[in-house]
């Protein structure tokens, strides 16, 4: 079928908007992998949790994620206090209790207030983010930190297990049917044959802003440089007094926030289910792999490519869309293995 200009433009627009979401997730995956060597499979659950938590706040029900946050908070406090039992100071204990035990209580209070007084949309978005984002560092404390020195493969297996557990919890909290959230920007822009929804503009702008913010964070701040140092050489970074635990916290907080934000952004344009996140994350993962799991610009660019391939595939050969999208990874892997014949093994690092 012939593709006229208007259809082409719509497909490109659709591809870029979806690609932007994949790009966000690819960035989060790269951050977590470079800093902690964890392939964060459960990032998809943060996407679904973010979207469905916001949807629950909109319908005026207390989302189940609030309880999960509380439970994870308690577990994380226990792990942190135990890990630091030999060199605990009043200040460190207070900090740990504050961030792991008080924070979920405050957030739960906010969520309740948000439902009780019908807060504006932007406040609900922020509360939803506040509910999901701390889960990142809590999960790091409980699951990954005690085994931070395990091999990449073991960490990956743990990630898959965590993904399955969180997905099951998602089904319990939100049920099997999907939800949508209100649009953040209701206006529609009309440019020639194109109707550009306000939401898709928000998605692209937020993605761009985040990329710039991350760039500044990694280039200009001490914390960002510490993360980069850990990514380059963990032992070296530790020797110059960069705490791997702190880096892990920051990386996981970033990843959970970005994941939840991605979910919130996309949930106004599509229906999100408790298990939607995995497929979105998988496409983000493909983009991250194309970037070699280290390169941010390459990951972001390939995410846009994936979005475009997906959009055009859904027009021309919708039955084979997923196949075409995931096939992109094969030539890339071939090329990579050809470029670097000696695989970097764990032990040789």
């Amino acid at each position: 079928m012939a593709v006229d200009l208007s259809i082409l433009l719509v497909l490109v627009q659709d591809g870029i908007v979806n690609g932007a979401i994949y790009g966000l997730l690819a960035l989060a995956l790269v951050i977590v992998f470079t800093v902690t060597r964890v392939i964060l499979v459960p990032i998809g659950e943060f996407v679904a949790f973010g979207a469905l938590t916001l949807a629950a706040l909109e319908t005026g029900t207390l989302p189940g994620t609030v309880w999960l946050l509380g439970i994870l908070g308690v577990a994380s406090a226990a792990c942190r206090l135990w890990a630091s039992r030999r060199h605990a100071t009043m200040r460190s204990v207070a900090w740990q209790i504050g961030t792991s035990l008080l924070l979920p209580v405050v957030v739960a209070g906010l969520a309740w207030a948000c439902i009780h007084w019908q807060a504006p949309q932007l406040v609900k978005v922020l509360v939803a983010l506040a509910i999901v984002a701390p889960m990142g560092p809590y999960l790091y404390d409980v699951v990954y930190r005690p085994m931070a020195d395990a091999s990449v493969l073991v960490l990956l297996i743990v990630s898959v297990a965590l993904h399955l557990a969180l997905q099951g919890l998602g089904l319990v909290f939100f049920g099997s049917e999907g939800s949508r959230t209100q649009s953040l920007a209701d206006t529609t822009l009309e440019i020639g044959p194109l109707f550009i929804s306000g939401q898709s503009i928000v998605v692209v702008l937020v993605t761009l802003a985040l990329i710039v913010a991350l760039f500044l964070f990694f280039e200009r701040t001490l914390m960002g440089r510490a993360l980069r140092a850990t990514a380059v050489n963990r032992l070296g970074a530790q020797l110059v007094a960069i705490s791997p635990a702190l880096c892990g916290h920051v990386a996981f907080t970033l990843a959970a926030s970005i994941g939840a934000l991605g979910g919130i952004l996309i949930s106004a344009m599509t229906t999100i289910y408790y298990d939607t996140g995995f497929l979105i994350a998988l496409k983000g993962f493909v983009a991250a792999v194309i970037g070699g799991l280290v390169s941010y610009p390459l990951a972001a660019a390939s995410a846009i490519l994936i979005g475009l391939v997906e959009s055009f595939a859904s027009f021309h050969a919708s039955a084979f869309k997923e196949v075409l999208v995931f096939m992109i990874i094969i030539p890339v892997l071939l090329w990579r293995s050809w470029r670097t014949p000696a695989l970097l093994d764990e032990g040789e690092e």
């Binding site: 497909l11 979401i21 996309i266 497929l279 979105i280 919708s318």
Partner: peptide, 15 residues
């Protein structure tokens, strides 16, 4: 055709 968890059905709709 589209998948249950697809985030967009724009291409199919246009076709």
């Amino acid at each position: 055709r589209y998948a249950r968890t697809d985030t967009s059905a724009t291409g199919q709709t246009l076709k």
